[in-house]
Design a protein around this nucleic acid. Sequence first.
DNA 1: ACAATAGTGTCTGTTAGACACTATGCC
DNA 2: GGCATAGTGTCTAACAGACACTATTGT
Lengths: 222, 222
Amino acid sequence: MKTRPILTVDVVLFTVAQGRLRLALLKRKRAPFEGRLALIGGYVHPEDDRDATGAALRLLADKAGLTGVFVEQLMTFSGADRDPRGWSASIAYYALVPEKDLAASPAASDLALVAPDDLPALPFDHDRIIAAALERLRGKSAYSSLPAFLLPPRFTLPQLKATYETVMGTPLNDSAFRRKIMDLGIIEPVPEAKSPATAAQRRPAQYYRLKRRALTAFDSTV
Amino acid sequence: MKTRPILTVDVVLFTVAQGRLRLALLKRKRAPFEGRLALIGGYVHPEDDRDATGAALRLLADKAGLTGVFVEQLMTFSGADRDPRGWSASIAYYALVPEKDLAASPAASDLALVAPDDLPALPFDHDRIIAAALERLRGKSAYSSLPAFLLPPRFTLPQLKATYETVMGTPLNDSAFRRKIMDLGIIEPVPEAKSPATAAQRRPAQYYRLKRRALTAFDSTV
DNA sequence: ACAATAGTGTCTGTTAGACACTATGCC
DNA sequence: GGCATAGTGTCTAACAGACACTATTGT
């Protein structure tokens, strides 16, 4: 048999930090493009990985020190020219992680958090992968609970609204947002749980959480 | 280096025939599952294929005798268990083709046209791939011109409406359909072109066509 | 009482569905 | 003129944005 194509996985890891949507890049430790910032990626390990999603989760654990992250397959980028090593296919994923989880990771210091507008020049076709991930994240956020995965397990509606606004880049109407999010039926109030009141935020807010289904990583068909 | 995973491409080829949505399956000519009906698929050929989309188009040309088909990447199915040959990844595509093109293909007699409700037992995880393709086709049809690729280059609005209804499986409101399709701005009337009137269809209908952009195969990011 | 944010109720403009209506061709 | 399908106009109900209003806390 002739040599098979290279098969890799790349993960676009999103978070919201300092009020902006950012993605985590990592300095490559090996050739090609050693030392350059790039997406979190690596080879599929057929012995270790149950499937490509498993490979994505392993990469997030090994290289970013993260477990229990939301990941979803984006699409596969392939071709003869995208990798100097030869014909390759990269199964791309995007992942959403709360800022605190990132900060608490043992690998936090390795990660460069950059806003999509401030991307450096990236190796391979990682700029195309990021563009596709952004488009998917924004498109899907409009009618799903996606941005909630950028928040801690318990969050208030004002926090959730702010996260949607950060992801989408547009301000939202308050009452319309509440109506829509409740109609979607994807979150539920946490009984008896209100956010602490502070000097700045007088009235406490009700805590909500995503309704039970995969709070952990999962792979959806859409 | 350890052995690399198997990389294949599979295509879910849709058409509308006898008023129903159908997909084309092909008898496998090689092991594993020789002689069984399955999706149109095969190995990626790094020497021949520019990228995975190129491989999908090559497979459609070689195995189904079709060129100029609309194809779009669906997602990639991977894992240790889906193929008896070992850890594999299949980059799945779906394709839309007018019934007449299929009938005119030299390979027409090789293709089995089956409705999604009447699928035989399929090898690999082809049932999952088909389920995902159906969900994508239906989901995306609601707000795009996708179903138009199931029709000839020139079509009437009643034909287009019937195709949407066949794909979605639900009846549509006539005037709302016209409004929406015109608002989307994806089709335009063919000047001076009306369908012939018949005994059954007294009044001729205006022909429309998709507005110029990729009428040929293309690969979109969403 | 007041400041500050959380949360609700209501008005209004836009849009999608229902459906009656008109238009065009062949017999 | 009648029939069959193409295509349009209009009424209405559902929904999203705007925004004023009430609610709840700490000082």
